[in-house]
Amino acid sequence: MVLLKLAALLFLANALTIGGGYAMIPMLQQEFVDHYHWLSNKEFLDAIAIGQVTPGPLTVMNAFMGFKVGGLVGALVAMFASYLPCVIIVTLVTKYYLRYKELWAVRAGFAGIKPAVVGLLIAVLIFLSQGSLINQTTKGIAVISFALLTFTKIDPSLIIIGSGILGALLF
């Protein structure tokens, strides 16, 4: 039952990931953390970190969360449910690309959803920062990480690994 819910949520969240891979974060935070309490806020941040330091798309963070919910089977169900909507949608769109491209409803719907994703992510960001930026040091790490990622081309995986080392030394 839990696995079925997990699969349904990930299917829906991935089918609504519009405007970049991070668009799934507010949906997953709401359902996995707030609603079902499968993960704590901290574990959710750790899941994002895992998705970021592992090679390949951020989507693999869903395997991490699936494992937390239902062990190995949970992880595999999570990955299957995350990729299934993408495979269905993309194969259909590739087949009918020329017609799809002309659909005004797709363009208009996406144009509405993309800025909304930004608004949702800001709200989630505020929420997540409350639990994790608990003192001057964590605030400092967050500011440095923001500045490096915004103004340089440094690899985000390196920043996460570096901040982990900093954490080990400072806390």
């Binding site: 941040l45 750790d46 992510l121 994790s132 967050a142 990622l149 996460i160 954490g167």
Partner: peptide, 16 residues
């Protein structure tokens, strides 16, 4: 993970 969580907040902020 305390350090990592703080960096992820900065990373998300940059993406947003």
């Amino acid at each position: 993970m305390k350090g990592v969580a703080a960096a992820v907040v900065g990373l998300l902020a940059s993406i947003v």
